Structure formats: structure tokens, C-alpha cells
Simulated scan of single mutants.
Amino acid sequence: MSKYLVNKFLFTVDRDTALTERYREDPVGTVTWWEAEEANRILSCIDAERSTWLSFTDEERQALATHDHVALFELGAHPFLTLTLWIAMFERDWDEPLGMQLDYAARLAHVTQPYPDISC
């Protein structure tokens, strides 16, 4: 697994409002597009500087495409990156205060220490 690439995806999507909405509405298409067009960008401002070797594993691609934050956490994605992106995408769907965050935590309640390694 490339924790770096998964975390780069989460970080990049979270920092662009249009991309966040695109990922919310079309996760499969967004993951496919991002992996093909953005994953191997070395410097985001220079198109000519690209790599060719970075790609998601099937497991990573599936977890990203289904918005599965539990699987992403278990794969080693940084929980703060998934949490902030999930807040941007899904908090509006909950009526009660902190409803999304409480659901996010409840789905991870089975995880005990030591947590999966989140270092890159």
C-alpha cells in the first residue's frame, strides 16, 4: 500500500471545494480521474514534472471509491485527513450536532491500540 498516495489524495481533495463535491457525488469517477491525472504529479504547478510509477492498489481504490473510512484507516490512511474530508462531504447530511463525527467514531470503535501505522 502507498500510504503516501492515499494521503495525498485525501489532502488534495479536501483542499479544493469543487473537487470535494465531485468526490462526494462521483467517488468512482473522481478516484479514477485523480489516479490517472493527478497521482503522479510531482509539483502541482508544473505539468511537465510527472512520475509514472504511483498507483493505488485495488484495495485502496475500492476503499476510496466507496467512501470507506474504516478500511482507509485500517490500511494506514491518516485519520485526520479522512475526518476533515468526511466533515466537508457528509456533515450536512446529519440533523443532530456532531452526528457525522459520532458516527465516524462509532464505526471505528472496534479498533484498539496499537492503531495501524500511519507514518509514511
Rank of each mutant, 00 (worst) to 15 (best):
M1E: 02
S2M: 01
S2K: 05
Y4E: 15
L5H: 06
V6R: 04
N7C: 04
K8W: 06
F9S: 04
L10E: 03
F11M: 14
F11P: 10
T12H: 13
T12L: 13
V13D: 12
D14N: 11
R15H: 07
R15N: 09
D16S: 12
T17C: 12
T17G: 10
A18T: 06
L19V: 03
E21H: 03
E21G: 05
R22H: 11
Y23V: 13
R24L: 06
G29W: 14
T32P: 08
W33E: 15
W34T: 10
E35G: 09
E35D: 07
A36I: 01
A36D: 10
E38S: 14
E38T: 12
R41P: 10
S44V: 15
C45M: 11
D47P: 04
A48R: 11
A48P: 01
A48Y: 05
E49T: 15
S51R: 13
T52Q: 12
T52Y: 10
W53Y: 09
W53H: 12
L54W: 11
S55H: 12
T57G: 03
T57L: 03
D58R: 06
E60I: 01
E60N: 03
R61N: 01
A63H: 00
L64K: 10
L64G: 08
D68I: 01
D68W: 01
D68E: 01
H69R: 09
A71D: 02
A71F: 01
A71M: 02
A71T: 12
L72H: 06
L72T: 02
E74H: 02
E74K: 01
G76T: 09
A77W: 05
H78V: 05
H78F: 03
H78Y: 05
H78K: 08
P79H: 02
F80R: 09
F80H: 10
L81P: 01
L83Q: 07
T84I: 13
L85H: 05
W86E: 14
W86F: 13
I87N: 08
I87W: 07
I87V: 15
A88Y: 11
M89L: 09
M89G: 01
E91C: 05
E91F: 01
R92E: 06
D93P: 03
E96A: 02
E96L: 01
M100T: 07
M100K: 07
Q101R: 11
L102T: 08
Y104P: 13
R107A: 09
L108E: 04
A109P: 00
H110I: 00
H110R: 00
V111H: 00
V111N: 00
T112M: 05
Q113R: 15
Q113T: 15
Y115Q: 00
P116H: 09
P116D: 07
I118Y: 00
I118A: 03
I118P: 02
